[in-house]
Amino acid sequence: MDFEAEGLLEGIDDERSRADRIALLERLLAAGVTPEELRRAAAEDRLALLEVERMLGTEQFTPREVAAVAGVPLELVLKLRQALGLPRPDPDDRVLTASDVEAAERLKGFHEAGLPEEGILEVARVLGEGLARVAATLRPLVRDTFLEPGIGERELSERYATASAELGPQLGVVMQHILNMHLRDQLRTDVVGRAELARGGVLGAVRMSIAFADLVGFTKLGERVPAEELGAVARRLTELAGDVAGSHSPVRLVKTIGDAAMLVSPDPDALLESSLELVAAAEAEGEEFPRLRAGVATGQALGRAGDWYGSPVNLASRITGVARPGTVVAAGATREATAGDGGRWQWSQLPNRRLRGVDHTVPLYRVRPAAPS
């Protein structure tokens, strides 16, 4: 193959880089990459990534073919890909891999085992969202580890391929382990009582306490500091929230959204303690770290796809918005839920507020640990 005539050496002037590009092209050709794939990858400036892309799966099947081989409806194959957060292809686009065939066959097995289609797709949506974040975090980590001044395309391609071959299987084992740990932890608090057994299913809403904690002035901070520093602040909030939730069972960190963290627990006292510790941990970070404020509400909430919905979720978010920096403010229902705790908390009543999106006046209290007797 005449690489020069094919335009695969265009823009590469020095001899060392040309020799490196030629060595990479010859390596890829020997691995079965077609001239058309080489031209497309060169035009998109991703020749160094082509080998690892092929290791992750060669696009050789259409959705229609995958559906036929796996014995599942074509529409279900397309819905699964959409649920995973990937583009919906045309039924005859040759964009799927052998792994897609295996996934469709497993999908059929789940369906035959009695799992409903909507439930399977809901799990797929959560997996897609979570694993997209894992991929987005892992990709720059690998890239920044291997990229160094003066490295050639061929060596970079080899490093990526080696990392994929060695780390990929290990990552799968680690992810399975993490999934098992979370399932075990959640099953310990997922008690199915007599009412659920009689009904033949788990009742929807349950009484939960919800807390939101957000960084005061985070948006304005973004106007003054580089994006890297702002990202470091958000990452530190995730670390602090995770540490606090991990030390107070049965408190769980549901999610972080930029400048805010959401915690939930069926135990309002444990959640109040976690919220106070989180606010204090932010204070301990020093003057350069934004202060936190937290709002807590208690009521009937519905857990779905790893998130929580219902009036206490909305209320906790609104309370956070009116709390002063460095404080934890709780709704009256949360105070009532902890009334039998023997004076563990000191409550300071605040003026009742009309909160946006809430159709009634909400009694609010600032909460602190009770002074030692």
Score class of each variant (00 low, 15 high):
Leu9Cys: 03
Ile12Tyr: 00
Arg18Leu: 11
Arg18Glu: 09
Arg18Cys: 09
Ala23Ile: 13
Glu26Gln: 11
Arg27Met: 06
Ala31Gly: 06
Val33Gly: 01
Thr34Phe: 02
Arg39Met: 13
Ala41Asn: 13
Glu44Ala: 15
Asp45Asn: 14
Asp45His: 11
Leu49Cys: 09
Glu51Tyr: 12
Glu51Phe: 06
Glu59Gln: 15
Gln60Glu: 12
Ala68Arg: 15
Gly71Asn: 12
Val72Thr: 09
Val72Asp: 03
Pro73Glu: 06
Pro73Ala: 02
Leu74Ser: 04
Val77Asn: 07
Lys79Thr: 00
Leu96Glu: 05
Thr97Gln: 03
Val101His: 03
Ala103Val: 00
Gly109Ala: 10
His111Glu: 06
Ala113Met: 09
Gly114Pro: 09
Gly114Ala: 10
Glu117Pro: 13
Glu117Cys: 12
Leu121Ala: 14
Val126Glu: 06
Val126Phe: 10
Glu129Lys: 15
Gly130Glu: 13
Pro140Met: 10
Gly150Lys: 08
Arg154Asn: 09
Glu155His: 06
Leu156Gln: 06
Pro169Ser: 01
Gln170Thr: 13
Leu171Asn: 02
Gly172Lys: 10
Met175Asp: 02
Met175Glu: 09
His177Pro: 01
His177Thr: 14
His177Leu: 14
Ile178Pro: 05
Ile178Glu: 10
Met181Gly: 13
His182Ala: 05
Asp185Val: 12
Arg188Glu: 13
Asp190Gln: 14
Gly193Asp: 14
Arg194Asn: 05
Arg194Asp: 07
Ile210Thr: 01
Ala211Thr: 09
Phe212Thr: 04
Val216Ile: 04
Gly217Pro: 07
Gly222Trp: 06
Gly222Gln: 11
Ala232Met: 11
Leu237Ala: 04
Thr238Trp: 00
Ser247Pro: 15
Ser247Val: 11
His248Leu: 05
Arg252Ser: 09
Arg252Lys: 08
Leu253Cys: 07
Leu253Ala: 10
Leu253Asn: 11
Thr256Gln: 05
Gly258Asn: 06
Asp259His: 06
Met262Tyr: 03
Leu263Val: 02
Ser265Met: 07
Pro268Lys: 08
Ser274Trp: 01
Ser275Leu: 09
Val279Tyr: 03
Ala280Met: 04
Glu283Met: 02
Glu288Val: 11
Pro290Tyr: 00
Arg293Leu: 03
Asn314Val: 12
Val322Gln: 00
Arg324Thr: 06
Gly326Val: 02
Thr334Lys: 04
Arg335Ile: 00
Thr338Ala: 12
Ala339Trp: 06
Ser348Glu: 11
Pro351Val: 01
Arg353Leu: 05
Leu355Ala: 05
Val362Tyr: 05
Val362Lys: 00
Pro363Ile: 01
Arg366Ser: 08
Arg366Gln: 09
Arg366Trp: 01
Arg368Gly: 07
Pro369Val: 04
Pro369Gly: 01
Ala370Cys: 11
Ala370Lys: 10
